[in-house]
Amino acid sequence: MARAPKSGFEAPRGRRASVLTRTPQPSRDRFGRFTEWIARAMGTPAFLLILTLFCAAWIGWNTVGPETLRFDDAALGYTALTLVLSLQASYAAPLILLAQNRQDDRDRVQIEQDRQRAERNLADTEYLAREVVALRMALTDMQNEAISRDVLRHELKTLLERLDERDAERDVERRDDGSAAS
């Protein structure tokens, strides 16, 4: 039975249904994450304990176990165990190096981001410091101007008072001169 087309409210506008229903692609970085998981797992006490128990069980079985069921001869130095451990080490080393390289790349990116952030913080701090200095200078200028204005006003008042006194003295002299002349 054919499905009816979706109405405008049931499907997003401008999107094809095939785009929305497609399965997500596997991450291209899956192997890198796997190598990091291996490196983290091999660096744990649990891994060392499991490996030790595995070797002890191997040696114990091939030493004490029934001779017909032994698969690695103690007389030959446990050749199969040596081969298994060598194989594990030969795969572990490159995987650990890959994980370290990925970590180095992440660290490099993080260091670059930290450096850029520090530069921005320094620029912001320098800007704020310049602004604070400018505000201090403006406040100092305003205080100096206020003091200068007050001093200037006081001086002008003093001068006006002296001028008024002189004018008053001249008026008195003129009156005295005018009354003496009459």
Rank of each mutant, 00 (worst) to 15 (best):
R70M: 13
F71A: 10
D72L: 04
D72T: 04
D72C: 03
D73R: 04
D73K: 03
D73A: 12
D73M: 07
A74H: 02
A75H: 04
A75F: 07
L76G: 01
L76T: 09
L76M: 05
Y78Q: 10
Y78K: 04
Y78R: 04
Y78P: 01
T79C: 08
A80L: 15
L81I: 03
L81N: 02
T82Q: 11
L83E: 06
L83N: 04
L85A: 14
L85F: 09
S86N: 12
S86G: 13
S86A: 15
L87C: 08
L87K: 01
A89C: 02
A89Q: 04
A89R: 00
A89N: 01
S90A: 15
A92G: 09
A93M: 08
A93T: 04
P94V: 07
P94A: 12
L95H: 01
L95A: 15
L95P: 00
L95G: 02
I96S: 10
I96K: 05
L98D: 06
L98F: 07
L98S: 07
A99E: 13
Q100R: 05
Q100W: 03
Q100D: 13
Q100Y: 03
Q100M: 10
R102A: 12
Q103L: 09
Q103G: 05
Q103T: 06
Q103M: 07
D104K: 03
D104H: 02
D104F: 05
D104A: 14
D105S: 15
R106A: 13
R106V: 09
R106M: 12
R106Q: 12
D107Q: 09
D107M: 11
D107K: 02
R108E: 14
R108L: 12
V109K: 04
Q110D: 15
Q110T: 11
Q110E: 15
Q110L: 14
I111W: 09
I111N: 11
I111K: 11
E112V: 06
E112K: 05
E112H: 05
Q113H: 09
Q113D: 13
D114C: 05
D114T: 10
D114W: 06
D114G: 03
Q116M: 12
Q116C: 06
Q116R: 11
Q116E: 15
R117P: 00
R117A: 14
R117V: 00
R117N: 04
A118R: 03
A118C: 01
A118D: 11
A118P: 00
E119Q: 10
E119N: 01
E119H: 02
E119D: 11
E119P: 00
R120V: 15
R120L: 15
L122D: 09
L122Q: 08
A123R: 08
